[in-house]
Amino acid sequence: MAQRPEPEPITVRTDKLAEIDALAGAMGRSRNDIVNQAIEQYLQANAWQMERISDGVAAVRDGKVMPADDVFAGIAAKHGWQR
């Protein structure tokens, strides 16, 4: 069975630590809960973004793109906007 790596300490700026503590207190949660939730949300958002970027690069490679003017014209037509 593989061993889990030992956790490494991280540094948080003092002004951010005060904000984290204030939020944790207001929510009745621990500092650890707040930090872990924030990290999880950050990682999820960036993983989603990187996936979309990879999909976009693959679409360009495969020639599955439209000129920007065509996209903008389609959006304008859909909403009845003048271009």
Score class of each variant (00 low, 15 high):
residue 30 S to Q: 07
residue 32 N to W: 05
residue 32 N to K: 13
residue 32 N to A: 12
residue 32 N to E: 13
residue 32 N to Y: 07
residue 34 I to H: 05
residue 35 V to W: 03
residue 35 V to Y: 02
residue 36 N to K: 11
residue 36 N to G: 00
residue 36 N to Q: 12
residue 36 N to P: 02
residue 38 A to L: 12
residue 39 I to A: 08
residue 39 I to D: 02
residue 41 Q to D: 14
residue 42 Y to W: 15
residue 42 Y to L: 10
residue 42 Y to F: 15
residue 42 Y to P: 04
residue 42 Y to M: 10
residue 43 L to V: 15
residue 44 Q to F: 12
residue 44 Q to W: 07
residue 44 Q to V: 14
residue 45 A to S: 14
residue 46 N to H: 13
residue 46 N to Q: 14
residue 46 N to Y: 10
residue 46 N to M: 13
residue 47 A to W: 09
residue 47 A to V: 12
residue 48 W to H: 15
residue 48 W to D: 15
residue 49 Q to N: 13
residue 49 Q to I: 08
residue 51 E to C: 02
residue 52 R to V: 05
residue 52 R to C: 03
residue 53 I to V: 12
residue 54 S to F: 06
residue 54 S to V: 09
residue 55 D to G: 08
residue 56 G to K: 04
residue 56 G to R: 06
residue 56 G to L: 08
residue 57 V to K: 10
residue 57 V to P: 02
residue 57 V to W: 04
residue 57 V to H: 08
residue 58 A to M: 09
residue 60 V to Y: 14
residue 60 V to F: 11
residue 60 V to M: 13
residue 61 R to L: 10
residue 62 D to L: 12
residue 62 D to E: 15
residue 63 G to D: 05
residue 63 G to C: 03
residue 63 G to S: 04
residue 63 G to K: 04
residue 64 K to I: 03
residue 67 P to F: 00
residue 67 P to M: 00
residue 67 P to C: 00
residue 67 P to H: 00
residue 68 A to T: 14
residue 68 A to D: 13
residue 68 A to K: 13
residue 69 D to Q: 06
residue 69 D to K: 02
residue 70 D to Q: 14
residue 70 D to C: 03
residue 70 D to N: 09
residue 72 F to E: 08
residue 72 F to M: 11
residue 73 A to P: 07
residue 73 A to G: 10
residue 73 A to I: 05
residue 74 G to I: 02
residue 75 I to D: 01
residue 76 A to C: 08
residue 77 A to C: 01
